[in-house]
Nucleic acid binder design. Structure first.
Lengths: 239, 239
DNA sequence: TTAGTTTTAGTCACTTTGACTTTAACTAAT
DNA sequence: ATTAGTTAAAGTCAAAGTGACTAAAACTAA
C-alpha cells in the first residue's frame, strides 16, 4: 500500500525523522587517456563543501524537489552541477542502507548517464567540479565507490547486450570508434574484423555515404545510429 | 517532522511536504490454472481499507521504518501481509512520478519476489488478501498495473538469461517442471528435447539419483539447483 | 499384451562465433 | 614514382550452438 502511515506509527517512531530522499548521478563520458591517448571512461565528481565528508569528492546529487519526478530531478541536477544534458539517462538503483550517511538516514535514488564527448568537453569544470578516470578513483564520500562500481557493472552489462555504446559517441562515427568504446568499457581487445561483422549485423546501424577524411590511412566509412534509448518503466513511450 | 505535514488537512501544504517513502512488493508464485491445470503466474494483492482507492486491490506495501534497510523493509512487509519468506528478492525500481497518489507525493521503492509453490500454498489468504493471476488483473490502485507489467517484463528478461526459474520450484524438480515454468512465464511452448539439452548444459543444475515416482508414465529423474541468487549491489556477498 | 504417453538420446541442417587470411585504399618515407 | 607501413573491409574455415525432427526407453492403463 502506498498510503502514508503517519497515524499508525507510535510516538517513539514519530519522533524520529523520516529518511530524507536524495538523487545522485553517475555520469560517464569518454575522454582520451593521458598516457595512451585511447578513449577511456571518465566521470565528474563534486567536492563536498560541508559535513559530513567535507572536502572529499562525491557524486553530483541533491535533494528531490517537490514538483519534479525522479528523472527530472536527475536531469536538473546534472545540468546544475555540470552543465550537461545527457544523451542517455536511466535509473540505476535506490540505495537505502542504514549507515550510508552519519547521523541522518538518507535514501539515494541514483541515476546513471552517458554523454557525448563533444558535450563532455564543454562541461563546467572548477575548483569543486572535476573529472576523474572511472577506473582509478580514490576514496569517495559515503558509499559512492560502491555505487560507481555498480554503475560500471551495469554499463558493461548493457553494453554486452543492448545497443548503448552509441550514446557515448557523436552522431557520426566509424566502426573502429565503436570498437574503441567497447574496448574501453569492457577493458579488453576485440578482433576488428569480427567486431565489424557483428555491428554491421545490427539493424540500428546505418551506413552513410560519407567517409572520415584526414586520417593517416584508408578513410573509414561513417555510420549513424538510428535506434532509440532503452526502455525503463518511465520512458516506454518511445518504442 | 513528518507529523506536521501528515496531520495537516490542507492539500496544498501536503503537496509541499517532502515526498513520503514507501516499499511495495510484487510477489510471484506458480499455481495451477483453474482451467488447464498447468502452472501459471499468480501474485497476492491486498484490499485497500482506506482512501485513496479504498476498496481496490493493491500491491502489498507500507512505509519504510527508520531502522530497516530497503531490502529488510520489503522482507518484513512480505512476512506481515502474506506470511511469506521469499526464495528470491530483488529491487525492481523506484517509482516517483508526481501524481502517483492523489494529494500526497509518494515515492515507492518496489521489490519483486519469487516464492516456491509449497510456500505459496501456505500463504495467508483472507477477505483482504487474495491471490490473482498475474496476466488477468483488473484495475488496481495507484499505478500498480504499470508496476506489475514492468515486474513481468523483468521476470521474463531474467528468465531468458539468468537462472532464476528454479526459485519458483521446490528443492527437487524434473526437467519437465522447469520447462513448464519457462512456458508459463514466457507464454509459449518449448520443444522438450531441445530445452532439456540446454538446461543440462548449465553447470548449476545437478543430477540426483532420485526419480519422481507415482506418475503415469516413465519416471523422470529429479534434479537440484546449486546456484546462488542474483547479484544486486546489496547482495553481492555471494559470488 | 498392447496402446498411449512421457522421458531421454540422438541426427541433421542452419546459424553464429572466434581465429585467421587477403585485398583495398590511403599516407609517409625513400 | 615507388615502396613500405597501416588501417579498412571482405572473406574463409572450423568449432560451437540452435531449431526441427526421429527414435528408443520406460512406465501406466486398458
Amino acid at each position: 500500500m502506498n498510503t502514508v502511515y503517519a497515524n499508525s506509527a507510535n510516538v517513539a517512531e514519530r519522533r524520529l525523522a523520516p529518511p530524507s530522499l536524495a538523487i545522485s548521478n553517475v555520469i560517464f563520458a569518454l575522454r582520451p587517456s593521458e598516457s595512451s591517448g585511447r578513449p577511456t571512461l571518465w566521470l565528474p565528481l563534486v567536492r563536498r563543501i560541508r559535513e559530513p565528508y567535507k572536502g572529499m569528492w562525491a557524486l553530483p546529487g541533491g535533494p528531490l524537489q517537490h514538483d519534479e519526478s525522479l528523472q527530472d530531478a536527475a536531469s536538473r541536477n546534472l545540468r546544475d552541477t555540470t552543465g550537461l544534458a545527457p544523451q542517455y539517462l536511466e535509473q540505476l538503483y535506490a540505495f537505502g542502507g542504514l549507515h550510508r550517511s552519519p547521523a541522518q538516514r538518507v535514501v539515494s535514488i541514483v541515476y546513471w548517464a552517458l554523454v557525448r564527448p563533444t558535450e563532455a568537453a564543454l562541461a563546467d569544470e572548477s575548483e569543486n567540479v572535476r573529472w576523474f578516470r572511472a577506473d582509478k578513483l580514490s576514496e569517495l564520500a559515503f558509499d559512492h565507490n560502491a555505487i560507481v562500481d555498480y554503475a560500471l557493472w551495469r554499463l558493461r552489462n548493457k553494453m554486452a547486450y543492448g545497443s548503448i555504446a552509441y550514446h557515448l559517441l557523436g552522431e557520426f562515427f566509424t566502426l573502429a570508434q565503436v570498437r574503441e568504446v567497447y574496448e574501453a568499457v569492457l577493458d579488453r581487445q576485440l578482433d576488428p574484423a569480427n567486431f565489424r561483422r557483428q555491428i554491421k549485423g545490427t539493424p540500428e546501424i546505418e551506413e552513410t555515404g560519407e567517409y572520415l577524411q584526414g586520417g593517416k590511412h584508408r578513410p573509414p566509412r561513417l555510420y549513424r545510429f538510428t535506434g532509440t534509448p532503452g526502455l525503463g518503466p518511465d520512458n516506454r513511450s518511445t518504442p
